[in-house]
């Protein structure tokens, strides 16, 4: 029972992070049908920028929470610019190109970002200075920290903000219109280019928030961290039905929980044949099984074949 509760809590934390990153993938995909492979790298850059800001402000005598806030803010801003830049430079010129072309560009950009990060921050793991004093709470034999509480709360706030934006504002309406049919939307006076750029910018901002969370949760960062994180988050987005915001959130949390439970129980389930180092497999096994029965994800609309 203790393990169950503990793994649920850990899974929820991890899932919140996956969900935020998955939103970045799903927003872009929903609007222009592109897998933005470089998104994981945007998250990584977000973590690294936050790290640099926090370290350079750590000695200034400012209150730790303020420093964290500044770090988060700057990292969000940097990532927004980065997202805009990616769209403008790498993807916009390729609209109307064959489907695989922007995919290769995305992979190329991801290599570029990774190596730029390595040149700037070095190839070693960097440790986050602990800014908040950790409190440990006990509940029914399981423990969780205030960092975990903060992660889940902030993620929930950011996601509700996004839902409000998409469903209640003019920009959100333009986004939904573009996702449905870009040509018609542009005839109705929607500036498609602006909407697509905004999808990248917002997605990257969410990624930066997730990056800061990962950094403060694991207290460690590495220039290659974006890759696996991005992969898992993309899996989460597909699990929920790519292009679907609520699906990405549910998929992210589901994936986090499954992974945590899997890592906790795999030894027992297989009679110690498979150990917890198979953790990474769960994401993919679940994905394959789900897609076998629901080919467009858990919450994806069953779209007919293209005419």
């Amino acid at each position: 029972m203790d393990t169950l509760l503990q793994q649920l809590i850990n899974g929820l934390t991890l899932g919140a992070v996956y969900a935020l990153v998955a939103l970045g993938y799903t927003m872009v995909y929903g609007i222009i049908g592109l897998i933005n492979f470089a998104h994981g790298e945007v998250v990584m850059i977000g973590t690294m920028v936050a790290f640099t800001v926090i370290v350079s402000l750590a000695g200034s005598g400012m209150p730790p929470l303020l420093i964290l806030g500044i770090g988060l803010l700057i990292s969000v801003l940097v990532c927004m610019v980065l997202g805009w830049f990616l769209e403008r430079v790498a993807y916009r010129p390729l609209r109307g190109a064959p489907r695989l072309t922007p995919l290769i560009t995305a992979i190329g950009m991801s290599m570029v970002l990774q190596n730029v990060a390595m040149i700037i921050w070095g190839r070693n793991y960097i440790t986050f200075p602990p800014m908040i004093e950790k409190h440990i709470f006990h509940i029914g034999g399981a423990t969780f920290t205030n960092v975990q509480v903060a992660i889940v709360t902030i993620a929930a706030l950011v996601m509700s903000g996004l839902i409000y934006l998409v469903h209640r504002t003019r920009l959100g309406m333009a986004m939904r219109a573009t996702a449905q049919n870009p040509q018609v939307a542009s005839l109705m006076g929607v500036d498609i280019n602006r909407v697509i750029a905004m999808a990248f910018i917002i997605g990257s901002a969410l990624g930066a928030v997730a990056g800061c969370m990962v950094g403060s949760y694991y207290e460690i960062a590495h220039y290659q961290m974006g890759f696996m994180l991005g992969l898992k988050a993309f899996t989460a987005a597909v699990l929920g039905g790519i292009g679907n915001l609520a699906g990405a959130m549910a998929g992210g949390i589901l994936l986090g929980v499954i992974e945590a439970l899997g890592a906790g129980y795999i030894g027992q389930l297989t009679g110690d044949f498979l150990g917890s180092h198979y953790q990474d497999i769960f994401a993919f096994v679940v994905l394959i099984v789900v897609l076998m029965f629901r080919p467009s994800g858990l919450f994806g609309e069953r779209t007919g074949d293209r005419a």
Partner: peptide, 19 residues
């Protein structure tokens, strides 16, 4: 890292000019 950087960049450029 410079090597991989150029590698990635050339992929982007090729796709840009010869989709």
């Amino acid at each position: 890292s410079l090597r991989m950087l150029i590698f990635g960049l050339s992929m982007v450029l090729v796709m840009r000019f010869r989709p």
